[in-house]
Amino acid sequence: MSATRVEEARPPAVTTLVHRVGRTEALLFALALIATITLIITTHGNLLHSDTIRAVLQYLAVPIVIGLAQMVVLAVGQMSLSVGVLTGLSAVVSAGLMVDHGVTPWLAVPGALLIGALAGLINGLLVVATRINGFIVTLATMTIISGLRYGVHGTGTYDGYAPGLVKFGRASILGLPTVFLVAVAVAIAVAWFFRRSVAGRQLLASGGNPLAARLSGISNDRSVVLAHALSGLLAGVAGVLVLMLSGSVNASIGDDLLLPSFAAPIIGGVALVGGAVSVLGTCLAAYVVRLVDVAQAQYNINPRWVDLVVGGVVLGAVMLSQSKDGTDET
């Protein structure tokens, strides 16, 4: 007896591929390609100078990682306002350890990661315990962490720490900046986490259909805590990258990282309701925004226009993705 054929008509191969990769990602890839080529042409090849490429990629590293930090909580349908300031805190504490207490970078760097992860963990636990929208909870913790940054060294700057680390941070391997390579490695790790690890799949299940997840024995609370902890860890990584690249840190680091942390995943197609991630989309979106920055510098466009455009695109992307889902009112 032949099996009950349940397939409806198979769509053409191209559509399947695009469907697999994701429509947004394909669009973004095309956009990135077009934008890159356009910039190359209009700058008469300036863009292809090794110096320019290095600058572009170096300053792409932190936006990628910070975008991933936000993406991880978006996956469970949450948001974290504290990713920006947490980056700053990790960087400042780490630098403080090295400068004020002579701690070796081999300990100070993991220290930064630890702080990030710990703060993220606390965020997650608070959200679960108070059962309140993560936005408000992280609004409170963001305020706290924001203040804590200044508690390390006031408004002073740390520099001259671990010259070896900074040299490494500013170096390039095979023409690609080390910080960029670290960011890429992190991106690959995050992608792997969500695609292959059990914890990652369970996290996505919690975000995609909390009831189905619960019935399958998955703890939604645990997923939320894990997501926030991971987000904090990634913010810590971003802090380390800042440490490595800039060579001098102060307490104001992270103030301008909040918008990029949202812009990258949102433009990259990650839904605000949770359940889906797109590492590729987030990275591509960060890249596109970076290109916009390059163009702004190149053509002396008022940077405020960039802010406006990015803000507007985020608004549009959110509205588009939400109205597609047809969300009901609060």
């Binding site: 949202f262 405020r304 226009w305 406006l308």
Partner: peptide, 10 residues
Amino acid sequence: DFGLLGLVSL
């Protein structure tokens, strides 16, 4: 908020 951020500075 994001949209207005840029608009206001501008």
